[in-house]
Write a protein that binds this DNA or RNA. Structure first.
Length: 1175
RNA sequence: GGGCGCAUAGCUCAGUUGGUUAGAGCGCGUCCCUGAUAAGGACGAGGUCCCAAGUUCGAGUCUUGGUGCGCCCA
């Protein structure tokens, strides 16, 4: 006996029970231990931050992260899943600041760094409980107890190890980074914060003359909207591919150079006459020309300074780089001359691909200190000179936003306030050509609304990633990205434009940058561990941590490697006796933390066992996150891995520290599913305040986790940006989950009625009686189990479908295509429910215990068991629920205790019968057409018809079909099915060309042939083809000969028949009704009415009834007479009469227009026993 | 401004190497079934495959341009 299945199932309730079951029985752990020694399938968890509540997007990520490990485990791999938490970073600090009602760094320092990071720590784990609950409820199996945590000492030390490696190899260096700077607050703002503060403002827009050095009568006309940056001018950039005009300004009496296309616009603005254009020259020709900048603070000193140019490997001096690959070389110089080759360091014209010609003059003022693009220009220039001889960054502005003594005229004044005076000064000196207001968006501090931000250089630490660009690209090319356009698109492009990784952050809550500097000499050392630090000579400062610990004994030990405690630790400088080594103040970008997880999750290399763990779990086979991680985690993983774990370093690296393991590309991940972003129900961004999505917990409570999972997996490929839809989640239930559930419930009902009990006859192994996974081999030992080849067509067909689907689902899942796999599974469940069970119902109802019936049970049982396994990775709860009943409970614990410990079903090729699939598809088409024809003729299925005639386009399967007309006649309620070849009375034939074949052969003659065939008499052509084996058609440009493979025949039903046409057949109904057929139809109507009444009266399946039908209709009386037994059998009627029944409520009805009164009375159940159908 | 992606039925989405009649679910309409039953099923209506040009015998599919939307970066 199987445990009876409740008809209306509450999936959420069921799932919660299964959650408990998995936990109690430690099924996840068992799924791992069962695979000990097996090949590893390596999964990396990208660590989420638990300082906010999880939303539906996180559910998608976590669902996908669960699916493939589950699947691979069932496929025989061992897949460890270590959870992780990202704990550092600015977002955490911002949350805490919000909480404390503070904002600036000064306020944080006033509050105290120590209590501040305690708050950060608290905040990071605020929602851990919610995250863990969600993880478990969603069925995401992962080791939460064993999670790696980025602030833990072992993790931090692992990150330090990596940084020390980079530092010692010269790949970690200090440089400048241009940031959006809030001068009044003394802090840089993150991109997100800057984005919030844009406002439209009017700034001065000035056109300034920069005289050329070699042509003192000619000026560059330069445009800028930040006059205050002019004292720091270092270069002028032009567009090398555009034309520039040299014009005479009559009013001024000088020549001006400006973009040719802007000439008119400028002339109109200024109102000057330009009587003559002297010359049109390309921007390229301007490059290298020197000019005199408007302020001489630096020019006085360095205006004539030159530096040696760098000699490249080909022995060429490179100067004035136009573009990356478009340099000017001095080819005809000798080596000695090249060594001497020099150029002026600054105040030259340079190429700039960023120069646009929509506004301004086409000549752009460059002040590298105050613009990111400008700064890149400086870096590029520096790279052209021998180390140390190129242009240096000049900066006459202090961090508080005031001019330094280097600009004595404006010293001590806020830069923006100086705009007016600078303009006046230019005017006085005659350099100002034109001035106006320029309205544009400019960022302000989101906290102090009156403070404009400025771009400003800050000392910062960088990792030399650009030196690995080609190597990262090579690695990237080997990664299997899904969708694959990420590889060469978004991610590849990002790598192509790689800039050195700005690693340091002037913040508080993060992994401290492990670099100690000598206070005297500036000598620097990287430290890879806390113990290493303690062992340094003259180490002092651990007392700060010890004191804190005494005050608060609950402080986690891990905090000691964080600010402010780590900052207190100093040691003796090896370079200057008596001086101290002190840590730099910065923490690092938290993306470095998460990108280090492949090794840092194990505390590699210091932690015991980490070497082995790392070697076994690197690289990952599979990772998945959403698209927004392209420049985040995906990049940090790849960059760090490439810098550390490949044998070849950057060009020129020598004596590189040994690192193991060194791994072939791709690493650190081989397959990566990039998930689409999830939108709210309204198509907008998901937002808590807009309430445009339903919280995951509500979804779990209403529909369950399987519904949500199936919605994610089956509705679209995972990289689609989906619009989250509660309705769609809900619909997954009837479309898939409930459909399967009903098949399962149907099986259990009838198996119990018929006493189908596989456990009774399957003994399992001789000692324990274990039956394991109840594979087909095990089932084959059961009573009455017959080889599939001996069973009927329907059974063979569904088992063929089962195996076909197992094969395809496996193939799809191996290719990381969950959407394709789900399509297959849904199709199978549909076939099982809507064709196999539907067409087999009679077999299960039949009274006697026949072989055919037993076959049906074994077939359906096997299908259900295999389906459980097939769907287990997708909808683990439903799969488990069915498995528990059909396998575990039925076999009283002799079966394997969870479906998730089973092997994924593999297809048995011998069970797949493609021919049978094709035939059954044809049967289903015929039935569908038959129904369509019935609809057209308004003949309901209850009315039996004498005959249906089927015209097949291709008679190959006809003999088989003739043997299986029962499927058709049963479904269509017709007495006879005939296949006819002489179908001319019903149909006309159209002959169509096979385009795929004829297209290449006929080319442009094809349209002519198509026209000819469309107009021809199809029947005649076919007759000719049959007689001759080919047909020849006369086209205007010559004859064309076609054989049977060149054409396709389409049939069309003629008017006047109850017919319907499909791709391969036409179905014609015979609509002549004999009296007997009409009577039978009436009998079925009566059965229908009685059954309805039974339901209304609340009869059980097995209840027997007495029926009274009172009617004056002779037709109904006749039908009752003729089909008395049929009616009684179908409705479990033990007495039927034409009189009212005492004590029963009469029901007034109309049957096909005939009025009648129906009386029904329940009878005792003890008349019969056993199967209610076997009357 | 640059990069990437998306645009197919009222809605949410599929659409395999270009091929004859572009599909599914929901919703809608008509109906069937009523012993899987607070389910299930069939049939039908509904499409300028965003627009334009090109390649081709043939384009939802390939190319180019445009429009709209999204994301990332400036």
């Amino acid at each position: 006996m199987f445990r009876p299945v409740e008809g209306s199932v509450s999936l959420p309730k069921l799932e919660e029970e299964i959650c408990r079951f998995w936990k109690d029985r430690r099924i996840y752990e068992k799924s791992l231990s069962a695979r000990s020694g097996a090949e590893e399938f390596v999964f990396y968890e990208g660590p989420p931050t638990a300082n906010g509540l999880p939303h539906p997007g996180h559910c998608l990520t976590r669902a996908i992260k669960d699916l493939f490990p589950r699947y691979r485990t069932m496929r025989g791999y061992r897949c460890r899943r270590k959870a992780g938490w990202d704990t550092h970073g600015l977002p955490v600090e911002v949350e805490v600041c919000k909480e404390l009602g503070i904002h600036s760094k000064e306020e944080i320092e006033a509050y105290g760094v120590e209590p501040f990071i305690h708050k950060c720590l608290e905040s990071v784990f605020r929602y851990t409980k919610e995250w863990e609950q969600l993880t478990e409820r969603l069925g995401f199996w992962i080791h939460l107890d064993d999670a790696y945590v980025t602030y833990h000492q072992s993790y931090v030390e692992s990150v330090w190890w990596a940084l020390k490696n980079l530092f010692d190899r010269g790949l970690l260096y200090q440089g400048h980074k241009i940031v959006w700077w809030w001068a009044q607050g003394g802090t840089a703002l993150s991109a997100g914060e800057v984005g919030q503060g844009y406002r439209e403002v009017a700034d001065p827009s000035v056109y300034v003359r920069f005289p050329l050095v070699d042509r003192p009568d000619t000026d560059l006309l330069v445009w800028t909207t930040t006059p205050w940056t002019l004292p720091n001018n270092q270069f002028v950039a032009v567009s090398p591919t555009s034309d520039y005009a040299v014009v005479e300004d009559k009013t001024l009496g000088r020549r001006l150079i400006m973009a040719a296309s802007l000439l008119d616009a400028i002339k109109n603005k200024v109102g000057h006459e330009y009587p003559k254009i002297h010359e049109i020259i390309s921007g390229r020709e301007l490059i290298g020309r020197r000019y005199v900048p408007p302020f001489d603070y630096y020019y006085n000193r360095d205006g004539s300074t030159t530096g040696h140019l760098r000699i490249d490997q080909a022995g060429r001096a490179t100067r004035n780089m136009y573009y990356q690959n478009d340099c000017r070389f001095d080819e005809d110089r000798s080596a000695a001359e090249l060594e001497e080759e020099e150029d002026y360091v600054a105040w030259r014209i340079l190429p700039g691909s960023f120069v646009t010609l929509d506004t301004g003059t086409g000549l752009v003022h460059e002040a590298p200190a105050f613009g990111e693009v400008d700064y890149d220009v400086l870096l590029r220039q520096q790279s052209l000179f021998t180390e140390g001889e190129g242009p240096q960054l000049i900066n006459a502005v202090a961090a508080d936003g005031t001019f330094t003594p280097e600009a004595p005229d404006y010293q001590g004044r806020w830069v923006k306030d100086c705009d007016r005076d600078i303009i006046r000064d230019l005017k006085d000196r005659g350099l100002l050509y034109h001035q106006e207001q320029y309205v544009h968006d400019y960022p302000f501090c989101w906290r102090a609304e009156e403070d404009p931000l400025i771009q400003y250089p800050r000392r910062s630490w960088f990792i030399s990633t650009t030196r690995f660009k080609e190597k990262m690209l090579a690695n990237n090319r080997r990664i299997n990205w899904l969708p694959d356009h990420i590889r060469d698109g978004r991610f590849g492009n990002f790598l192509e434009t790689n800039v050195d990784w700005a690693l340091s952050r002037e913040r508080y809550w993060g992994t401290p940058l492990p670099i100690w500097v000598c206070e005297e000499t500036g000598h620097m050392e990287a430290v890879a561990g806390y113990d290493e630090l303690l062992a340094k000579p003259g180490m002092r400062g651990t007392d700060v941590w010890e004191k804190a610990r005494k005050v608060n004994p609950n402080l986690p030990d891990d905090l000691k490697v964080h600010k402010p405690y780590i900052d207190a630790i100093t040691y003796d400088s090896p370079k200057a006796p008596g001086k101290r080594m002190r840590r730099v103040s910065e923490v690092i970008d938290c993306w470095f933390d998460s990108g280090a997880m492949p090794f840092a999750q194990w505390g590699y290399p210091a932690q015991a066992g980490s070497q082995t763990h790392f070697a076994e779990q690197f690289p990952a086979d599979f990772i998945s996150e959403a698209l927004d991680q392209t420049r985040g985690w995906f990049y940090s993983l790849l960059a760090i891995s490439r810098l550390l774990f490949s044998p070849d370093g950057p060009d020129g690296e020598q004596d590189r520290p040994e690192v193991r393991p060194e791994v072939e590309y791709p690493h650190p991940f081989r397959n990566c599913i990039v998930l689409g972003l999830m939108l709210g129900e309204d198509g907008g961004k998901m937002s808590k305040s807009k309430r445009n999505y339903r919280e995951p917990q509500v979804i779990f409570d209403r529909y369950g986790a399987d519904a949500l999972r199936w919605y994610f997996f089956a509705n679209q490929p995972p990289w689609t940006s989906i619009r989250y839809s509660e309705q769609s989640i809900k619909e997954c239930i009837p479309e898939f989950l409930l459909r399967l559930w009903h098949v399962y419930s149907f099986f259990v009902i009838y198996a119990n009625i018929d006493g189908f009990d596989p456990a009774a006859s399957i003994s399992g192994d001789s000692i324990s009686g274990a039956v394991g996974q109840l594979t087909a081999d095990v089932l084959a030992t059961g009573d009455g189990y017959r080889p599939v080849s001996q069973r009927g067509e329907l059974d063979r067909w569904i088992l063929s479908e089962l195996n076909r689907n197992a094969a395809t689902a496996t193939e799809r899942m191996d290719a990381y295509d969950n959407h394709g796999a789900c399509g297959q599974l849904a199709e199978f469940v549909d076939a099982l429910s809507n064709w196999y069970v539907r067409r087999s119902r009679d077999r299960f109802w039949s009274g006697e215990q026949s072989t055919d019936k037993t076959d049906a049970y074994w077939t359906l049982y096997e299908c259900l068991l295999s389906t459980c396994k097939l769907i287990a990775p997708f909808v683990p709860f439903l799969a488990e629920a069915i498995w528990q009943n059909l396998a575990c409970e039925a076999f009283c614990g002799r079966a394997i205790e969870s479906v998730h410990l089973c092997d994924y079903p593999t297809a048995r090729p011998d069970a797949i019968d493609e021919t049978l699939s094709g035939r059954m598809a044809q049967v289903r088409e015929i039935v569908s057409l038959g129904r369509s024809a019935r609809m057209g003729a308004k003949l309901k299925v209850r009315q039996p018809l004498p005959l249906v005639e089927v015209v097949l386009a291709d008679a190959t399967h006809q003999p088989w079909l003739e043997e299986h007309v029962g499927l058709i006649s049963g479904e269509l309620n017709v007495k006879r099915v005939e296949f006819t070849q002489k179908a001319d009375r019903y149909i006309t034939h159209t002959v169509l060309p096979d385009l795929k074949r004829l297209g290449p052969r006929l080319g442009r003659r094809l349209p002519g042939l198509r026209k000819l065939l469309a107009e021809a008499d199809g029947g005649k052509l076919l007759a000719e083809l049959k007689a001759e084996g080919r047909i020849t058609l006369e086209l205007p440009d010559g004859p064309v000969t076609l054989d049977s493979a060149d054409i396709q025949v389409r049939m069309q039903a003629k008017q006047g028949w109850a017919a319907a046409q499909g791709r391969s057949s036409v179905v014609v109904l015979s609509t002549e009704l004999s009296d007997e057929l009409v009577a039978e139809g009436l009998a079925r109507e009566l059965v229908h009415a009685i059954q309805n009444r039974r339901r209304e009266l609340g009869c059980e399946f097995t209840d027997r009834i007495a029926v009274g039908v009172v009617t004056r209709s002779g037709e109904i009386q006749d039908a009752m007479g003729q089909f008395r037994e049929y009616i009684m059998r179908e409705t479990l009627t033990v007495e039927i009469g034409s009189e009212p029944l005492a004590g029963s409520q009469p029901a007034e009805l109309k049957l096909a227009g005939h009025p009648l009164t129906l009386y029904i009375r329940k009878r005792g159940q003890n008349y019969f026993s056993g199967n209610c159908r076997s009357v």
